[in-house]
Design a protein around this nucleic acid. Sequence first.
RNA 1: GCCGCUUUAGCUCAGUCGGUAGAGCACAUCAUUCGUAAUGAUGGGGUCAGAGGUUCGAAUCCUCUAAGCGGCACCA
Length: 665
Amino acid sequence: MFTITLPDGSAREVPQGATPADVALAIGPGLAKAALAARIDGVLVDLATPFAQDCALALVTARDEADALDLARHDYAHVLAEAVQALFPGTQITFGPSTDDGFYYDFAAQRPFTDEDLPAIEGEMRRIIAANKVLRREVVARETLIAQWQAAGESFKAEWAAELPGDEPLTVYHSGDDWFDMCRGPHLPSTGKLDPAAFKLTRVSGAYWRGDQANAMLSRIYGTGWLNKKQLDAHMTRLEEAAKRDHRKLGAEMDLFHLQAEAHGSVFWHPKGYMIWRALEAYMRRRLDAAGYAEVKTPQIMDARQWEQSGHWGKYRENMFVVPDEIPHVSEEGGEDDAPVLSGKADLMAIKPMNCPAHVLIFRQGITSYRELPIRMAEFGCCHRNEPHGALHGLMRVRQFTQDDAHIFVREDQIVGEVADFCDLLDRVYKDLGFPEYAIKLALRPDKRFGSDAMWDWSEQSLRDAVAATGRNTPEWGWEELPGEGAFYAPKLEFHLTDAVGRTWQVGTMQTDTVLPERLDASYIGEDGEKHRPVMLHRAILGSFERFIAILIEHYAGKLPVWLAPVQAVVATIVSDADAYAREVTARLRAAGIRVESDLRNEKINYKVREHSLAKVPHLLVVGKREADEGTVAIRTLGEERQRVMPLAEAIALLRAEATPPDLR
RNA sequence: GCCGCUUUAGCUCAGUCGGUAGAGCACAUCAUUCGUAAUGAUGGGGUCAGAGGUUCGAAUCCUCUAAGCGGCACCA
């Protein structure tokens, strides 16, 4: 007999061999039906797991949403695999976990799956769910299982089984009597616990076996899975809403920028988009000026040898744009399609992929005293990186981008103070831009790196200490350490914003680098009259203007705060009798520093309201004969239907207040 | 770079069996002077992504190239 303690504190005696399912049934048939899994002493297990000792038991039902969702998604993945093998004999199964919104499964298929295959697979999955097949756990000896997989032609499973670590016995889950997969579990008691209307296969894609480019390309099927149809529908609605705020779509609709094949990965900023950029850059420049940074501008192209010395050539040259330092010879015939003729012998120059070496070169000019440190050198640096083509994505991942970059040259004893000041500055900026919520993480040394272990120990600890000194190394700040995620020359603090729809974006960074000052021989004269190496702090708050503006557009769904909006107000007439007054209003607003346009077109006011609303203009000032006579304007604010009629002077004051950047209020 | 899909007017898209290209919006012109999310009429506009092939004939079938989209890998 075992004593089972339930969450309400009550205890039950159960015989040897009893399971959580038995306890559920003893409590009531309703609970037995609702139970999906169990937690024994906090560990999630199958309902059919026999008790091994006295323990605390909590039955998991759909009310325990996090557990229930994860179980369901995991089961959907198995049902997907079973369905695919039923429809496509000869397809090997590999691996299929739950995800944040569903599940996927990777297959080694005869041919890659396409979207057209999905409806049939969904249908087969529903048949498996309707059949309510019992999911039964079995412990199998490793060698037996490997032999079984090999016999079944499942080479990926066999490889995986052979490499699973430790001596733990391997478990398989049977679906009915005719299918099984290797899995740690736990699982629902049967496929019938899944809601056949609560999942949807969403897309297919390629994926490398074990996530390694050197391995085989598998065919992955993604699905989204929920506990019921209502949740699924809500999820699909969320996806539609997210698609509406996609910066690529809004960028076109609002006429902010465009991309085209001839310069793929580089942005054509249109006047309105560039106005956002200018407002953001001007704001950042004021913040940096106030924080004691000195702005510089450095060369776009430098001799490749400079990049060899910095170490970037060895590690990243395949992603650098390289140009020969020679004047190309053009053939005499001079046809229009003649390519320039290059000798192939010229020295190479590279377009800068980053600003750091150039900043060190400025630092190295002349002799620096310890008294001058810290030196905070900022640059809105335009960089080029030849990214893998499949990586490009709107403004989020581009080949030409401008960083809000800065390097702070410090003595070791100044690091904590500088990092703390940086955290405060970044906090201020994120709040000003509408992101009060963000997380801080520490990315630790990667496998491939420069510098000694002692150096890494020291620089990782310096960041840890610095954040601890600000009191931000706590769970509330999302603090965690990420092994292997650091840059090759330095560990980095990562700052992750949370946007309006809950997505996170890594934007800010702070790195303590001792490698580059060494490689490029940067030094200062210390109190002792000797040369010392400064530490170089690489830091950015926005990351890149391109990507940050994309995040702003999506965060605000295009409805930017007035101070960032490219057009802050439009003065629209109802009929032509107010044209003169509208011109006057526009001129007065413009004189007050408002980015204003007028719309005197011979169009109905309904049409104008619609058009400027879709263009996300924050304020529409409608003027007719009445307003002209009274010297007022009727303000309609984006997202509202009511209008406020007020004297022009009052309207100007209101708009000026809203149009003032947060640091100037 | 890898897997899959896509590419037709400025934009969003239709185009059946291979028979010579169509809509809405936008734009232009004209009419309309209207009070808060689309006024009406008329008109101009396309080497069907590019190159090659099959065919009497290609937007349509095949091959290659490029870009875009969804993932994977990468992201100093």
